[in-house]
Design a protein around this nucleic acid. Structure first.
Lengths: 245, 245
DNA sequence: GCGGCGCGCGTACGCCGTACCCGAAGCGTG
DNA sequence: CACGCTTCGGGTACGGCGTACGCGCGCCGC
């Protein structure tokens, strides 16, 4: 099977990821392993941001020389692929027999949590469809929630992709703000002030109207509220076609 | 007013952006202008990708020395902010009196087009809420579509943010694939083969079930279809609360 | 005429990813 | 036991990046 993959022209990174699953251990003792490298890289990216992750810094944290890393990863891009396969962990177990909406909501919330804990996943662009074991496991978990809904296969897939896209988009903005200088409360106060200053009725009439109704006061509350609202609308929409099918 | 902004502690980049609007021209002749720099930077990022945009390359394209750019932008990060303000252009004019759903759909499609034309917008993380004139104009256009729906201000804002988040998430994945080696048809064929090879019933039961129903054959068609499906679900969900209000 | 200032530029520095080559240790084979 | 091969960790070196800093030129108001 692995051979077949090579024939098809699977990228090196994916071959390694799937090989790993097939033949679990059987390695000689070695101080530097891919697992350790990837785990440490994730640590750095989580705490200091993806921009602070350099091969030199990573090696220093591992107590090794920079170039030694290249025994285990082909280059930095491959390291990032390994990182984004490992970081999400295992998806929540969704009961295929349970309520589809509750299941999908759990799934979406877990996914958002992953993105908020590892915001750099949203920044590194895979440039290819999800084919690593990690991503497929998450897709499978999402589909589990919809398995008894009567939707056909392509609809089920389209539905979880829609939810995933929404979660991804929201998380990216949310994570971007959380990790910046705009996170603290005082600066958010300033944001409201600036908004009221810049949004005038003649320039942005509809924005001004919403602002006068207190839209931006609302926005200052827990950002989870905005996320839940959008998610609920998406689930409403999915429910709409489930009822009709 | 500009003074007030400075008092509040507005970042330099935003002050420039809004200043520009207030006092239109009145500049001496100068060969290097911020407008020209930003426009050329956008050109490079669009055609060669954001990774290919360096200050040196930009200067070369402009026929100037690298360090001359720093007379007009504080640093590269500020340049990126200027770029993402300018690139989206003016939003489509939405008739506030028209059908809200049609209006929002036009808005979402235009937004997606912006993201596909300038994929780098999705990669650079603003790290702050949208406060530049460009972003606010788009928000205003989106809100126009909902102005007669009976939703209150914060709901209208939450609704367009939900749509924006979805569009953003979808565009990011879609743009990532479009610009990669997986774009051509032959490789997509391989993607289907790999999928069928890796997705086994014991490992990913629900994914396998969807696959057997031809979910991945469907996925190979125009990616616009998947986008429209998710957007329709989101709009269905928004319609659901409009009807109830 | 002249001082100041805005503009474009050149040099230099530290950090980045990584190509390339070397030495040491463990292994099966003669 | 000797030997070569393979595998692993490391060191050096290079080109490219963003940008701090200082210089000279030309235009402007006085």
């Amino acid at each position: 099977m692995i051979g077949a993959m090579a024939d098809i022209g699977m990228p090196r990174s994916l071959r390694i990821l799937w090989d790993m699953e097939e033949q679990p251990v059987k390695r000689p003792v070695q101080s530097l392993t891919r697992e350790r490298i990837v785990a440490t890289a994730i640590e750095i990216a989580d705490t200091d941001g993806i921009a602070a992750l350099s091969m030199a810094k990573l090696a220093e944290r591992l107590g090794s020389a920079t170039m030694s890393l290249y025994r285990h990863v082909a280059n930095k891009e491959e390291l990032l692929i390994f990182m984004s396969d490992a970081a999400p962990g295992t998806p929540p177990a969704i009961d295929p027999g349970g309520d589809w909406r509750a299941g999908l909501e759990v799934w979406a919330l877990a996914l958002r949590e992953v993105y908020l804990r590892h915001p750099w996943i949203l920044v590194i662009n895979p440039g290819r469809p999800p084919l690593d074991p990690g991503q497929l496991a998450w897709a499978d978990a999402g589909l589990a929630a919809l398995s008894r809904t009567g939707l056909d296969g392509s609809r089920r897939l389209a539905a979880i992709m829609a939810v995933l896209n929404y979660v991804r988009g929201e998380a990216q903005i949310s994570a971007g703000l959380a990790g910046s200088a705009w996170a603290d409360e005082e600066t958010q106060q300033r944001y409201g002030d600036l908004m009221r200053l810049l949004v005038t009725r003649d320039r942005f009439p509809h924005l001004a109207a919403a602002s006068e109704e207190g839209a931006f006061a609302m926005e200052e509350e827990a950002d989870g509220a905005a996320f839940s609202f959008g998610l609920a609308r998406m689930l409403d929409g999915i429910g709409h076609i489930i009822d009709k099918s």
